[in-house]
Amino acid sequence: MAKARKSRGESMLLRYLVLGGWALVCLLPILWFLSIGFRPRTEVITPQPIYWPTFSLDAWHLLMSDWPIAKYLRNSVIAVAGSVVIDLMLAIPAAYALARYEFKGREDIGFYILSTRMMAPAIVAVPIFFLFKTLGLLDSVWALMLIYAAINLSLVTWIIRSYMLDIPKELEDAARTDGAGDLTILREIIVPACLPGIITAAVIAAIFAINEFLFTLLIASTSNAYTMSVALANFTGGSDGIIYNAIALVSFIAFVPILILVILIQKHLSRGLTMGAVKG
């Protein structure tokens, strides 16, 4: 006889065990970070790991008193949010033109825009440095805003374009016969219809911008324009040597906004990353 069939309940249990196990593997480093961040400094540097630490806010107090975390966070938020706004303002009309207007070289221009993303960033690091030096924008949050916008513009354009391609052309034809012009169609029909795509593109751009390191390090020469990513790299815990629990806590704080963004767009993320490779 055939082997006994598993009941529905058993197979569900198995699924939960496997998925739960995998989730634990993925989450363990983050939980370990968190546990280091909230234990006393002495417990961090023992030769034998202590799995059940005593809870302590030492690292938190150290950060709050000695380290301008609020300033770094503010810099990050200004530069990232500003860059996303610039990206959307440029990318939405560009994506619409690439998705809808018939003109010679349309595909070439689309590919050229995307190809700017293929270049290794280090290649342009030195020219960018001199460019911003000439413009007097070194060590400024505004410079970071422009750089993040430039880095992500191609990606944002392409993600939005792929969503726009999925909007039935009939909708625009209808709006046109109803008496709407191009800008009205873009504003009232196209943008609302591909809002999920625009949000996805914005969040992906924000995540890339938050994590941007190379150009931030290049432009932000003092803590004036440090964002979380560079401040984190420079952080050792102060004058008393390397303070691991404070580093762990800062890392966790830097990680939280990204986590929130990813949770927000989880539903659209895979779609946004495949970018019209398979039309949804």
Partner: peptide, 14 residues
């Protein structure tokens, strides 16, 4: 001054 009705309705979804 022409109004058109489309096969796929073309109603504005939002």
């Amino acid at each position: 001054d022409v109004a058109m009705v489309f096969q796929g309705y073309a109603l504005y979804p939002n």
